[in-house]
């Protein structure tokens, strides 16, 4: 085997990376070849010299400290990340709201709908009328309640007893009910007359002449 052919295998042999067959071939060659033996010795000497004086760190403490500091920094950063994300979220939400408001405002100002505006105005007017009527009704009721309360106070101030006031109130309610009933009766009668339900030529029985009054 030529030395040049063996060089790569010799390097593998030095590292214990040969197969048993390759190792046997290298050993056989080394027994016969002083040049390759010298090469192997030089590799070994250079390796030993290199390793012997290679500076090693006096202590790994600084490396430990650096690693620990960096891990702490990362953990602290990770802990504050949710807060930062929340802040970013709030800012983003406000930004979105502001944008949406700006868009609505711009659309409202630049593209008003005449129909919608008219409808809205009518709704406002109807609503205003309803509200005024309700206020009138409520105002009337309130006024009547106040009048009743004032009358009661005046009666009490005049020395009318509570029992007498209650009796007068019942009489008033009875009179009111009778009055309402009479008003309704009159309304019905007038309506029927207006409709001709009663014949204008018909006479009451009392209006007839008595029999044998001319004899």
């Amino acid at each position: 085997m030529e030395c040049n052919d063996l060089q790569l295998l010799l390097s593998c042999y030095a590292d214990g990376e040969c197969t048993p067959e390759e190792a046997r071939r290298v050993r056989d060659h080394l027994e016969l070849c002083a040049s390759c033996r010298a090469t192997l010795e030089q590799w070994t000497a250079a390796s030993q010299a290199w390793a012997a004086e290679e500076p090693e760190p006096a202590s790994l403490r600084p490396l430990h400290a650096r690693i620990e500091a960096e891990l702490w920094r990362q953990r602290a950063s990770a802990r504050s990340a949710p807060i930062r994300r929340a802040r970013r979220g709030v800012h983003a939400a406000w930004g979105l709201l502001a944008t949406a408001a700006a868009v609505v405002l711009a659309v409202g100002l630049l593209y008003p709908s005449a129909t919608a505006e008219q409808e809205a105005r009518e709704i406002v007017q109807i609503d205003q009328g309803n509200r005024e009527e309700a206020m009138r009704q409520r105002s009337l009721l309130e006024r009547l309640r106040l009048e009743i309360a004032a009358t009661t106070l005046r009666a009490q101030a005049a020395g009318v007893s509570t029992e007498r006031l209650a009796e007068l109130d019942r009489e008033a309610q009875s009179i009111l009910a009778e009055t309402q009933s009479l008003e309704q009766r009159l309304y019905v009668l007038q309506t029927r007359m207006a409709l001709g339900a009663l014949s204008p030529t018909s006479r009451p029985r009392g209006d007839r002449p008595a029999p044998g009054g001319g004899r």
Binding site: Q7, L8, S11, Q42, A45, W50
Partner: peptide
């Protein structure tokens, strides 16, 4: 890898010699 290591050794050996 075999080739890289061999080349490196040869370079070192040359300078060493």
């Amino acid at each position: 890898v075999k080739t890289w290591i061999f080349r490196a050794r040869r370079r070192i050996q040359g300078s060493w010699s």
